[in-house]
Amino acid sequence: MRLVKIGTLKFLLVGTCLLAGLLCISCDSFGKKEPEREVVARVGEEYLYLDDISDLFADNLSAEDSIALASNLITKWATQRLLLSRAKFNLSEDKIAEFESLISDYRADLYTRAYKEALVAQSEDTLILDSELSEFYEKERVNFRLQEKIVQLRFIELPLQFLNREEVTERLRRFNENDLRFLDSVGVQFRKLHFNDSLWVPVSRILDEIPPLTAENESDNLKKSQFIELEDGSGVYLIKVTDVLGVNEIAPLSYIEPRLRQVLLNRRKMKYLRELESDLINEAIRRNEFEIYDNAQENTITN
Rank of each mutant, 00 (worst) to 15 (best):
M1W: 00
R2Y: 14
T8M: 11
L9W: 03
F11W: 14
F11D: 15
F11L: 10
L12G: 06
L13T: 03
L13S: 06
T16R: 14
C17P: 07
C17S: 14
G21P: 08
C24I: 15
D28R: 00
S29H: 13
S29V: 08
K32Q: 14
K33Y: 03
E34C: 09
R37I: 08
R42P: 05
V43K: 05
G44L: 09
E45R: 04
E46Q: 10
E46S: 02
E46D: 09
L50K: 10
L50A: 13
S54T: 10
S54M: 04
D55C: 09
L61G: 02
S62W: 01
S62P: 05
A63Q: 13
E64P: 00
E64M: 05
L69A: 06
S71D: 15
N72Y: 13
L73Y: 12
I74Y: 06
T75K: 12
K76Q: 13
K76I: 11
Q80D: 10
Q80M: 15
L82P: 03
L82M: 13
L82V: 11
R86F: 12
A87F: 12
F89A: 12
S92E: 04
I96F: 07
I96G: 03
A97V: 11
A97G: 08
E100Y: 00
S101D: 08
S101I: 02
L102W: 06
S104M: 05
S104C: 01
Y106W: 13
R107W: 11
R107F: 12
L110M: 15
L110K: 04
L110F: 10
R113E: 05
A121T: 07
E124R: 14
E124C: 02
E132P: 07
S134N: 14
S134A: 13
E135Y: 12
E135D: 10
K139I: 11
E140A: 01
V142I: 15
V142F: 12
I150N: 02
E166S: 13
E167S: 02
T169M: 06
T169G: 10
R173V: 07
R174I: 00
F175Q: 03
N176M: 06
N176T: 05
D179T: 02
L180Y: 02
F182I: 00
K192C: 04
K192F: 09
H194N: 11
H194M: 09
D197C: 13
D197F: 14
V203R: 07
S204C: 06
L207K: 07
P212H: 07
L213P: 00
L213H: 05
T214W: 05
A215C: 01
E216D: 09
S219K: 12
D220R: 12
N221S: 09
K224M: 11
S225H: 13
Q226D: 08
I228K: 01
G233L: 08
G233M: 04
G235T: 06
I239G: 00
K240Y: 03
K240E: 02
V244T: 03
V247R: 10
P252M: 01
P252Q: 00
S254Q: 13
S254A: 14
I256M: 07
E257P: 12
L260A: 06
R261L: 05
Q262C: 08
L264W: 08
R267G: 08
L273P: 03
L276T: 07
I281C: 03
N282P: 01
A284Q: 04
R286Y: 05
R286C: 02
N288Q: 15
F290H: 13
E291S: 15
E291P: 06
I292W: 09
Y293F: 13
Y293P: 05
A296T: 10
E298M: 14
T300A: 10
T302P: 06
T302K: 14
N303G: 08
